[in-house]
Design a protein around this nucleic acid. Structure first.
Lengths: 139, 139
DNA sequence: TTAGATGCAAAGGGTTTGCAACGTC
DNA sequence: GACGTTGCAAACCCTTTGCATCTAA
């Protein structure tokens, strides 16, 4: 159903059909520098397409995730959060204001290999999240 | 309201009142070598206290967590999972069978310090979760 | 024309909460 | 007796889904 083309091509074209809703949702997530929830995406897209429904937002977020165009975080809290940055990276969550930041820490692939060697697991990837206070919340 | 006494003392005594429900819930989580959900804890405790309610389970899991007697994982999926192991450690989730394993990998505290230095965050702790296939699911 | 995509509303699943009754100190 | 705790059920919140309608190809 969904065919992922080369990273260079517009992956939206690989969907069975185009829709302005999906395009708006994708753009919203990609341009957000926060790590938005579905609700937030919905509120944003609503400014452009006032009668879009939450169900459509959820359906498309799921599709876009399956197509590898966005990623989903579910280790921050019990809310799904989406991210236009598909590259592997780490996160920091401020326990005061709740904001989530991308972290520039280099990703350590060797961790996966070591775990695989020592425990006999097959390890595909890992998620690393830091918790504390951001600059603004320390004063 | 809740006073955490020394790790040696029975922290349950520091609660305003005792209840057999709370004790059973605590024991169930501590003795589980899985990383149980509230629902699972409820099913277990029900064998001992048949008319316990789910609400009581949730209330006590929250209390026990606040008292530092159990910990909560919310980075595995969008379900709260509880753990009698309060020490800092990492996790592996099998994407096939869904089981979650504690990982013996040493905890790297230096990570927190480096992040703090480089980004100006105050870092309290971090969570690291690995994803892949466990031994049983590789065949 | 055909099948995917939408909007709507209802349903689902996990968690919290209000309240009267109960239990502990 | 005071007040923390419980059981129950309703409420809540986030997410999914069924269905008739719409729309891209």
């Amino acid at each position: 159903m969904i065919v992922i083309t080369t990273p260079q091509g517009n992956i939206l074209d690989s969907m069975p059909r185009k829709s302005k809703q999906r395009e708006a949702i994708f753009e919203t997530v990609r341009e957000a520098n926060s790590h938005p929830t579905a609700e937030w995406v919905y509120e944003q897209v609503r400014k452009e397409i006032p009668n879009i429904s939450l169900g459509t937002v959820y359906r498309n977020l799921k599709l876009l995730k399956q197509a590898g165009m966005i990623s989903e975080l579910n280790f921050i809290d019990n809310l799904s959060r989406f991210n236009g940055n598909v590259q592997h990276h780490y996160h920091f969550k401020c326990e005061q204001c709740g904001n989530i930041f991308d972290v520039n820490e280099p990703v350590n692939k060797e961790l996966d290999n070591r775990l695989a060697r020592e425990n006999g697991f097959k390890v595909f990837h890992h998620q690393l999240g830091f918790y504390g206070l951001c600059k603004d919340c320390q004063s």
